[in-house]
């Protein structure tokens, strides 16, 4: 760490750690035709959201045979639908070798357990799954709305609270110098004194609610307003903020 810091030489680039929230495709089994059909259905539900997104194939719940995993077909199908597969998460050694062969990045699994061992230990589970066939993959993702993240302590200056998938609910003040972000709506049962960014993946229907608008910045799907532009309407009162015709609109909650 000290060599670049002390040498003073300016390089063409610098490596930094970054965390990006991404969509993971939780694969249960792979059948080429069915895969494309299910994928198309998903995309049709929210075409804007899926366009050109990076995608991770998660193998942690993969129950099919490793030999059936054709990453080239998966990548091709996704490409045809404007989705970029960039890596795999989890999986056993064979599966990861196949992924590597398809030039995919390898990411550690969240469960840390080897699926192969898991299947050995609980074979009845593996047998059980095929009984409820096709709907599992499809219905799982549509009915389970991502749970809201609930924070009950004040978000202090310098802190950042992130809800990468769903709504964010805060039962305390968001202080000046703090930042709260959510893919969905943001509800603040207290004053909003810091920054609030809703719909960070582009959801234009996302809204921000707060009991007292004292914000440094509010943003919905990339459209933002700074404190200066918020003073005239609803300042220091309970409001909701939404996007209407590409404009952020602040409405007092008692008139909503």
């Amino acid at each position: 760490m000290s060599d670049t810091a002390t040498s003073g030489v300016k390089h063409g680039f610098q490596l930094r750690s970054a965390s990006v929230s991404m969509t993971a495709l939780e694969l249960y089994y792979f059948d080429d035709d069915e895969f494309e059909e299910t994928l198309r259905q998903k995309i049709n539900q929210a075409p804007g959201f899926f366009r050109d997104i990076p995608l991770i194939i998660s193998l942690e719940k993969y129950e099919g045979l490793s030999t059936e995993l054709d990453f080239f077909k998966i990548i091709g199908t996704c490409r045809r639908n404007n989705i970029h597969v960039i890596g795999v998460r989890g999986g056993n050694d064979d599966q990861r070798r196949l992924a590597r062969g398809a030039a995919l990045a390898l990411m550690p699994g969240t469960g840390q357990r080897d699926r192969a061992h898991d299947a050995d230990a609980a074979p009845e589970k593996a047998v059980e799954l095929p009984v409820s066939p096709t709907p599992t993959a499809a219905s799982k993702t549509t009915t389970d709305a991502p749970p809201a993240r609930i924070i009950s302590h004040p978000v202090r200056s310098g802190q950042q609270i992130h809800a990468p998938e769903g709504d964010l609910i805060i039962l305390a003040p968001v202080q000046a110098g703090a930042e709260v972000l959510a893919a969905g709506n943001i509800h603040i049962y207290g004053p909003l004194r810091g920054r609030a960014l809703a719909g960070i993946h582009g959801a234009e229907s996302a809204r921000i609610f707060c009991q007292s608008l004292e914000a440094e910045l509010v943003s919905i799907a990339g459209h933002y307003k700074i404190s200066e532009d918020l003073q005239d309407n609803g300042w220091r009162s309970a409001v909701q903020i939404q996007l209407k015709d590409d404009l952020l609109v602040v409405t007092p909650l008692d008139k909503a």
Binding site: H153, P154, V155, R156, S157, G158, Q159, Q175, A176, G177, A178
Partner: peptide, 11 residues
Amino acid sequence: RDSDRILGILQ
């Protein structure tokens, strides 16, 4: 403001 920052760090 600085106290708020320290409170965040404490937590």
